[in-house]
Nucleic acid binder design. Structure first.
Lengths: 105, 105
DNA sequence: CCGCATCCAACCAGATACTG
DNA sequence: CAGTATCTGGTTGGATGCGG
């Protein structure tokens, strides 16, 4: 019985963790930009998302990277060049966004 | 062109608003409890969700009510009796949770 | 070009005590 | 029974300036 309750709690926590992966003021704009354009440099993302600051862009990109949603490629050269693109897990988010879109109508 | 960008932004904002509807530490446990049990009183929800405080339960229930996800029925009597249940919009969240569940694997 | 460090305001969550 | 009020800490988001 307590196992059932614990199981429900674990499921709820995992779903909430998933929600937090895509929550954040700039994560949807980031994911949308990467989905439309494929691979983008940091400065291209910055231009593609009006209003975002460098700090928030960096911060959210790091979180998305830690969650395995975007991939970060550093080209060691001058001037620096860093590219971002969606991983398979990031692309797999599409059904989630589709169902959310259906829900809001 | 700026219309396209504005349209993308609006879509992203609507999706984020939808995400915020189901974000919050106790919203998933609340929705899960109501989904399993149908109609529940305030005190029944309190018992069904270990660790929640009266304040947070009230607050999240109010938000879910404002978003049209749960319905609140007040029976004017003593002792007080208030019941909560999912609306159609609340029940319609199931595909969203299903896709999230699939995503986390 | 691509960040990081610092400081600050606003919001979210919890503990506790009280009420019609 | 079903809340409200108050206080407090933690997290999020933003402005600004510096560095490799």
């Amino acid at each position: 019985m307590s196992d059932q309750l614990a199981g429900q709690d674990q499921c709820a926590e995992r779903l909430r963790a998933a929600i937090r992966c895509i929550d954040g003021k700039w994560k949807l704009p980031i994911l949308a930009s990467l989905h439309r354009n494929g691979t983008l440099r940091f400065s291209e993302l910055e231009r593609a998302i009006p209003g975002v600051t460098q700090k928030m862009l960096t911060q959210h990109l790091r979180e998305l990277e830690e969650d395995g949603i975007v991939h970060r490629i550093v080209h060691s050269q001058v001037p620096p060049k860093v590219e971002y693109l969606l991983t398979g897990k990031g692309l797999a988010l599409q059904p989630v966004f589709a169902s959310l879109h259906d829900w809001v109508g």
